[in-house]
Amino acid sequence: MKIVALTGSIGMGKSTTSAMFKELGVPIWDADAAVHRLYAPDGAAIRPLQALIPDAIGANGVDRGILTSKILQDPGLLKQIEAVVHPLVGKDRADFLAAAREQGVPLTIVDVPLLFETGGEAYVDAVIVVSCPPEMQRARVLARPGMTEEKFASILARQTPDEVKRSKSDFVIDTGLGLDAAREQVGMVYEALIKPTAETARKKDA
């Protein structure tokens, strides 16, 4: 089974691109969705985070607004949170990949926003980076509810610069060209990734 990472900085169109791959039948593991599961009222992260930041835990699980506020007040808190959450996210991903292997899936995508920041590129067969012009990125992000210049700057400071991500990737999908162009690029990348797998399968059957 080929494991491919999909990544990109905030506002680059990664979620839209991920949905396009899903339409092609590729199983997607989403790191953000995994965190949401862990932050839910019955999530595995609730108990350890409650000991660390009790104010951020409520009836609906982790309150991300309070969590973000706490991190902005104390940047060192982020490392402590990551020490709790990252191993749990890793287990969630491992469970997903194990299930995909059992099903005989030829290609899976792991959607990881902080791939290069965590060294995750070392554990996949290829990397796809989603990108767009910086002015478009900025406009998209600041249009989000509750987003501020301060939050945007804080997020960017924790992310590897887009040009570095593109230089380290195997494929780049430019969402700044419009949805149709992005979908065409996704199709081309999919064909490039799945073709060797399909050829190998034919050789085994021969």
Rank of each mutant, 00 (worst) to 15 (best):
K204L: 14
E163G: 03
A98T: 12
G146K: 05
R140I: 07
L77P: 00
V124G: 07
L142S: 13
G58V: 09
I53S: 09
A157G: 12
E82K: 03
T197V: 15
L24W: 01
V35M: 14
L97Y: 02
T200M: 15
P27T: 01
S15L: 06
E121N: 06
G76I: 04
E121M: 07
L78V: 01
R47E: 14
D125C: 07
D55E: 15
I109Q: 13
G119R: 00
E117H: 05
R158M: 12
E23Y: 06
E149F: 04
L97W: 08
G61F: 04
A126D: 10
Y190I: 10
K151V: 06
A122S: 02
A143I: 10
V85L: 10
M136S: 09
V35H: 11
R140M: 12
D162V: 08
A182H: 01
D55C: 13
D162Q: 15
S69T: 06
Y190L: 11
R144Q: 14
S18M: 14
F152C: 01
P48E: 04
K204Q: 14
A51W: 06
S154M: 07
I155P: 08
A59T: 15
L114V: 03
D170L: 00
M1T: 04
G25W: 05
L193R: 09
A33Y: 12
L67H: 02
V124L: 06
I28Y: 11
L114Q: 03
L77Y: 04
Y39E: 13
E163F: 00
P113C: 04
D162F: 09
E150L: 00
E191D: 14
K79Q: 15
V189E: 05
A99T: 00
